[in-house]
Design a protein around this nucleic acid. Structure first.
Lengths: 259, 259
DNA sequence: CCATCTTTGTGCACGCGTTCACAAAGGCAT
DNA sequence: ATGCCTTTGTGAACGCGTGCACAAAGATGG
């Protein structure tokens, strides 16, 4: 089995900044950017917290990890804070990104305008389908998987986006890592196995919907109480379960992949 | 200010099941489905944990919240577990879903085959652009925003997906909620404000990339140690910051929206 | 029927994250 | 200059989540 890697404590305090705080910095940055565009000079923690959708105490503690950038009695200087957070997140430099798997989702990602504005630049598009090779998507010619290593080597990208079917994801991942990629954003519904030192973040629409369904069911169950909620459908070892998923119809493509 | 809502403890133990466990159930379900398709009858917690990318102790504890579905010395019956988790997540019933905002992403979502296999059915597509009205996307005719309330009322959906630009998101959200939607998956880069009882989950590609960039920067900084890492760029109140984001270019559209 | 071996289920401890509450700090008006 | 008022920054408490480690349970072979 090719698993067992990719398990760090998940609490790696990178330079003393808690992971939970890092995950919220982009939220603050977005809210601050909006304020900046409206030429608002300063904000209080209360206002900014409301705009970011978090607790004000949490926000202040988050900022305290970055340093004392506020002024008591006044608040935070918007422009200065934008810069500080941008710098902390590493957004003051340019991050070339390669997208592998130019299906419906990959194409959508390539067209995403929010990349450039945050310092992310789509450096290359790669797909295994020969019929796509050479065709422009979002103004960039799609290149064939065969040249993956060469492309990464030449463009010097360190962040890869995987938007391939699940079946190819691990293979693509391995090649990306071997070619020098150290950060991967994975849209394929698979658990990727990577060596230590490589970061993987995953986005899975299906999972989010399932979590919503859980809460939705709970809400419905509370209203119409007294349903046949607790009725064991079959014997534990007996396996006469209505399978909803016919083989091959799912778990094969990432969220948002076309047919 | 129209904020201050949408803040529940985030630790709502729905029926005793921790939120963190609920978030992992879809992972287990996916791994189990794969095993089921390979006709594997039983799995141990160790094997399944490896396939799902989690700790085996964590997995056992997660399952313990659902009940004692395993057999000591043997493991878990795959089919039975698939059913139990599906039932717990509410996937044994059909969940009609409405997608609002048929841009590049919305269209990609509409084409996503993983919906149906998990019990999610795209009931309607809605967009504000009149030129899209009536045109089929993924076999479904796009309908105009004017009919939003009517559509939701007739189709009886309870889950809505927002893939509109950020500027329209809150307005769309309000209308969805008013029409009876109680669960929202938000792709727009905005903090949605919803009344109590409505669940919102957000997916933001830009945020994920920024988190990756942070770690990537940290990795690079550790290698090339001794950089001018700690060099305050400007005075705090002075605001001569190189703004990377020109107004309107960002924060206006959800991740994966076309131009 | 008994012994052995595997694997579950969980009690317990630990650590991170969140929140409260308040003292310190700075602006501002008088 | 002085006092008041606002807001930050943080010490401390609490709660959830995670992982260890082991006892209980059941299957399996003799």
């Amino acid at each position: 089995m090719a698993t067992g890697r990719n398990h760090r404590p998940a609490t790696t305090r990178s330079r003393g900044i808690p992971e939970a705080t890092v995950a919220r910095l982009p939220l603050y940055l977005r809210a601050l950017t909006a304020l900046s565009e409206r030429s608002v000079p300063t904000v209080s923690s209360e206002e900014l917290a409301a705009a970011a959708g978090v607790n004000s105490a949490k926000l202040r503690k988050d900022f305290s990890y970055l340093g004392s950038y506020g002024t008591r009695g006044v608040g935070y200087d918007v422009e200065y804070l934008v810069y500080q957070i941008s710098r902390e997140l590493g957004l003051t430099q340019d991050w070339p990104v390669v997208i592998v798997g130019i299906g419906n989702l990959g194409a959508a990602l390539a067209n995403y305008g929010g990349f450039a504005s945050r310092g992310f630049r789509v450096a290359a598009l790669i797909d295994a389908d020969p019929s796509l090779t050479g065709k422009p998507v979002a103004g960039i010619d799609v290149q064939h998987t065969d040249q993956l290593e060469q492309i990464i080597d030449e463009s010097g990208v360190s962040i890869g986006v995987i938007a391939t079917p699940a079946g190819s994801a691990q293979q693509v991942c391995d090649r990306l890592v071997a070619a020098g990629i150290t950060s991967i954003l994975n849209f394929a519904p698979t658990v990727l196995s990577v060596p230590e030192g490589v970061d993987v973040r995953k986005v899975d629409l299906s999972i989010e919907l399932q979590i919503l369904a859980f809460h939705e069911q709970r809400k419905a169950g509370e209203e119409a109480l007294g349903e046949d909620e607790t009725a064991p459908p079959a014997a534990p070892p007996a396996a006469a379960v209505t399978k909803r998923t016919e083989p091959g119809s799912d778990g094969d493509r990432p969220a948002v992949m076309p047919a």
